[in-house]
Design a binder for these strands. Structure first.
Length: 685
RNA sequence: GGCGAUGUAGCUCAGUCGGUUAGAGCAACGGCUUCAUAAGCCGUGUGUCGGUGGUUCGAGUCCACUCAUCGCUACCA
């Protein structure tokens, strides 16, 4: 009986943003697995697509003054270019905005209807009368109903952490138009997931389809109680597919996105004369999804539920990976660590990143860290210093002779490296690439030691030793080739180059098991340049300029170049409607000095500030700036506060004012200051 | 708060069923070498294995508690 063929997917990137190094962890991890399987002779297709629907796309297209279709076409082009630049070997890259996807959504929808899984319910949602659209949570801001913190998004409060519905917000404002949203009731359609509870319990807990941490997470979090109905419709206007039997309603983007996996496969089938059912409704295909841990829920509960109800094959395994940090911290545009794929490619070879990620990736969901110093060291030391150097230090010696006609005695080196192949293969199979890379580098170390002991450069000088010279080089080049086979899933270009050098292409994993003899050796050319650390720095610098030109907030940085401010910040939070001077004077802004900054131990985001308006006039203000400033940085500095804001009772005490700041929140909060000369108590006019 | 994880050498991490003096790579230091992309080889580690307590003849490995860090917390793409 033949092994099942493989259908592999990576998550569909959303068409609202560019691919960055964080995304690439997943596409590279998946690509390595796919290439490994193919090299082993396994039938394996790698399918992906752009995820194109939803409110965010609709709003963005509107802001850019063009159609959604135009926007997503541009974005798709750019995504495909980035992936190609990193040698991601998709068999097909489709789009969720395709006719195939619409037809599949219809069919799957009908199955859910037939299975009595669809129910209707009224949902109260905020509606923006000016923009004429319902507002997703992220497009509404207002005062938190729990702690009364102002300027909070519609789903949860960044200050007190409370979660609520946007309709509970006090004084809500649409971030699209600045209009006051009104509560509107609309009919929504839901999937009654609870009907599939026992199926999902079995599927997730079987131990065969998910990493154990994930199974535990689902069990503890969702499966212990009845599953909630899943709201999968959105009223018009919405960019997506209209629901055929519910005019005016559209499928929520998370309904049609995973179906895009099937639709994209279908497009591939049409191109290649294949039958879709052989891939999605057949025991002779194993489906493997690769995703990040942020979208676990959709892929391990909803998606299996939908597939099960609609009669499609379930994934054999959902492989979940962690996030990328850079130098130990979350990627941040401000620091230039959120590097776009295209920016990386301008400065560095994709092989570096593919190898570095491989050397860090294991089968678990730990986050992986891109340590920039280590990145440069590791790539240079392992790839250039150890692997490529083997060819570099021997190939030239036998350009005229070619490889020896018979494989010489090598003290068992080749045989032992060949037998390590099984362990390496197993590590790839189990997604333990870090282990695979360690095993491979052990072989490279042994090979380099052999070169050292055999001293081909000495043999070269002795005319009676030419046969031995050829033998030594034959051994070393065969070890090099073995390494290239083992590294081929990670470094496809190096494998090709090795094939050219030894005039025998690497086509199968088993090429590592028998040595090459008697072939000519091409003229040696450098296979991989050393990574220059300056280029890493240049990439980081460019990433800073590209994304946050307004980074020059600190006067200490000497800005030589005129800042190129992007429109991102304004687009993220459009201007509020016009207000009169009377409106403005209602707000009493005052200069104040922070005389005491205290930790609030139980609070995640708040610090307690005692501010002085001069004289004995002090007050207590709670500010959500814990992540952005240390207590020392706050102590003593002048800030601008809203002095006549109605005091709010917060969880940790009464807040008698508000400190003004710019920025989206979290670590990116920038307090307003005043030029020197201002004193506490002065009003801001 | 709940849940899931992590905490081993300066850095990044291995340590399979609990079993001899706890390992690797990188970095650092010393020596050798010069074929090679200033690459390579040899040598050098006094680590409270986060902490406390327990089980055991024996614990980095099992159990309890505790501290720290990270992530997730569904109508958000």
């Amino acid at each position: 009986m033949t092994q099942p063929k493989l259908l592999v997917t990576a998550a569909l990137p959303y068409a609202n943003g560019q691919i960055h190094l964080g995304h690439l962890v997943e596409y590279i991890q998946t690509d390595i697995w796919v290439r490994y399987q193919r090299l082993n002779g396994r039938r394996c297709i790698y399918i992906c697509a752009d995820d194109t629907h939803g409110t965010a796309i609709m709003i963005r297209a509107r802001q850019e003054g063009r159609s959604e279709v135009e926007l997503i076409a541009d974005m798709q082009k750019s995504h495909e270019r980035d992936f190609a630049g990193f040698d991601i070997s998709f068999d097909h890259y489709g789009s969720t905005n395709s006719e195939e996807n619409r037809l599949l959504c219809n069919a799957i929808w009908q199955s859910l209807r037939d299975a009595n899984l669809i129910v209707e319910d009224d949902v109260e949602q905020l509606f923006d009368p000016e923009a004429g659209t319902f507002l997703a949570d992220r497009f509404v801001k207002g005062t938190c109903p729990s702690c009364k913190a102002p300027d909070q998004y519609g789903d949860n409060c960044s200050k007190c952490g409370a979660t609520y519905s946007p309709t509970e917000l006090i004084d809500p404002v649409s971030t699209l138009s600045g209009a006051t949203p009104v509560v509107k009731t609309a009919k929504h359609l839901f999937v009654r997931l609870e009907n599939l509870h026992s199926f999902l319990e079995n599927w997730t807990q079987s131990g065969e389809h998910l990493q154990s941490e994930i199974a535990n997470y689902l069990k503890g979090h969702f499966l212990g109680k009845p599953l909630r109905d899943w709201d999968i419709s959105r009223p018009a206007p919405y960019f997506g597919f209209e629901i055929p039997d519910s005019p005016g309603n559209y499928w929520y983007v998370w309904f049609d996105a995973p179906i895009g996996y099937i639709a994209s496969t279908w497009q591939w089938c049409k191109k290649n004369n294949e039958n879709l059912d052989d891939w999605w409704k057949s025991d002779s295909t194993e489906i493997h999804h690769f995703i990040g841990k942020d979208i676990t829920y959709f892929h391990t509960l909803f998606w299996p539920g939908v597939l099960h109800s609609a009669g499609f094959s379930l994934p054999q395994f959902v492989h979940i990976h962690g996030f990328l940090t850079v130098d130990g911290e979350k990627m941040a545009k401000r620091k230039g660590t959120q590097v776009q794929a295209a920016t990386y490619l301008k400065h560095l070879d994709p092989a570096y990143l593919r190898y570095y990620y491989a050397s860090k990736l294991g089968p678990r969901l730990d986050d992986i860290d891109l340590n920039l110093t280590e990145f440069a060291n590791k790539v240079n030391s392992d790839l250039v210093g150890k692997v490529v150097n083997l060819a570099s230090r021997t190939a030239r010696f036998i350009e005229s002779m070619g490889l020896a006609p018979e494989y010489p005695h090598d003290g068992g080196l080749f045989a032992s490296a060949a037998s390590a192949g099984e362990k390496i293969a197993q590590a790839y199979e189990q997604l333990d690439y870090a282990r695979a890379m360690r095993l491979i580098m052990e072989i490279a170390d042994q090979a380099n030691a052999f070169v050292e002991n055999s001293a081909p450069w000495t043999l070269k000088k002795d005319p009676t030793q030419q046969v031995r010279l050829q033998e030594v080089c034959t051994i070393v080049l065969n070890l090099f080739r073995q390494l290239c086979v083992y590294l081929a899933p990670v470094l496809p270009r190096l494998a090709d180059q090795c094939g050219q050098l030894l005039q025998s292409p690497i086509q199968h994993w088993n090429d590592s098991q028998s040595p090459l003899v008697g072939t000519p050796v091409s003229k040696f050319e450098h296979l991989l340049q050393r990574l220059q650390p300056e280029k890493v720095q240049a990439m980081i610098e460019e990433s800073k300029v590209e994304t946050t030109p307004q980074a020059e907030t600190s006067p200490s940085t000497e800005a030589v170049v005129a800042p190129q401010d992007s429109g991102d910040a304004l687009a993220a939070e459009p201007l509020a409607p016009t207000c009169t001077i009377e409106d403005f004077t209602k707000v009493d802004l005052r200069v104040a000095r922070i005389i005491k900054a205290e930790e609030v131990p139980e609070a995640k985001k708040l610090v307690k500030l005692t501010v002085s308006l001069g004289g004995d006039n002090t007050r207590t203000v709670f500010a959500g700036i814990k992540a952005a400033y240390t207590l020392e940085q706050l102590q003593g500095r002048l800030v601008v506060i809203v002095a006549n804001l109605q005091p709010r009772q917060m969880k940790f005490g009464l807040s008698e004012g508000m400190v003004t700041a710019a920025g989206p929140g979290g670590t990116e909060v920038f307090l307003l200051g005043v030029d020197s000369g201002a004193v506490p108590g002065q009003r801001v006019h």
